[in-house]
Every structure is written in C-alpha cells, then in structure tokens.
Amino acid sequence: MKTDSIMTMTCEINGSESVFHIHPGDRLLDVLRHAGFISVKEGCGDGNCGACIILLDGRPVNSCLVPAARVEGCAITTVEGIGTPDNPHPLQESYADHGAVQCGFCTPGSILSSYALLRDNPHPTENEIKRALDGNACRCTGYVKKLAAVRGARGCFAADGANRRKGE
C-alpha cells in the first residue's frame, strides 16, 4: 500500500479499465482531462460550481476535490460514458430538445446530476429535481430550461431499461 511520489492507480472509466501513473497529490479532475475526458470541466476548483462533476461509483461528486489516488478500484462515469453524438442518452436528447444548453460549460455536470437522479428516482417531483441540481451553477442562467429538460426525461430509465455500468 505504501507509495513514494509516483504511484499506479487503476479504476474503471465508462466501463473500461484504466491505469494511471500519478502523484499522490494529483486531482482526479486533471487526471481525467489529461486522459482525454474533456467533458469534465474546471470552473471554481473549490467545490462550488459543479462543472467538474463525475459519477463516482454511481454518485455525483466534485472531481476537483478528489485526489486521484482515492479512486483506486472505483467506477467512474463521465458524460462521454452515457451517450455519444450518434447514440445520445434520452436525457441528453431532452437537454437538446428543451434548449437547456447555452454555452455548454456546465452541461456535462448538470447532465450527470440529472442522470443519477432519474436512475434512482424515475419520476422526481419539481423539488427533487431542484435539489438534485443544487450543486450545478450555470453562468448563462439556464436553470428554467434545465428543470424542463429533466422533467421531460422523467421515466427515461424505465424506457431505457439501463443499469448499464458497474456501480450505477
């Protein structure tokens, strides 16, 4: 378990095993972006904005406050893992259909928060939706459309049928 300076960390990202050589103090946010998962954004860097949200073993967390070494053996989901431009997840379609994306910087984090909500609670109330998105700041003030997008995607997990990845 003891490690000096460079250490190896293995985790599952969007269903595929990944191995990293990291420093003990590295942030998960940087390690993910460096590995090409650029949907994970840096906004505030201190846990306030939610641009860096990923799913860690299925739960949304701020990756700017997570040491990369901590996720050894864990399952990570980024927005790249829930759908592609050719085959988007129904929730991603709903964000597009409802015009819930303005500059798009906050969108990956918001989609992941919404995704975790709808997976656990397919028909959330308005208050449950607001609470699930309480960690996602949007500087383009697109909150109303986002709520509509999540409302519009209610039940998508039942239709999608998916418990698609480990830890979800």
Binding site: K2, D4, G25, D26, R27, G45, L65, A69
Partner: peptide, 13 residues
Amino acid sequence: MAKLIPTATRYDR
C-alpha cells in the same frame, strides 16, 4: 497538472 496537495509524496490506504 494542478495538485490538491502539492507537497504530498506518499499516499496510504
């Protein structure tokens, strides 16, 4: 890369 704890050289679990 930015670091959460730049001075850290060791990590134990």
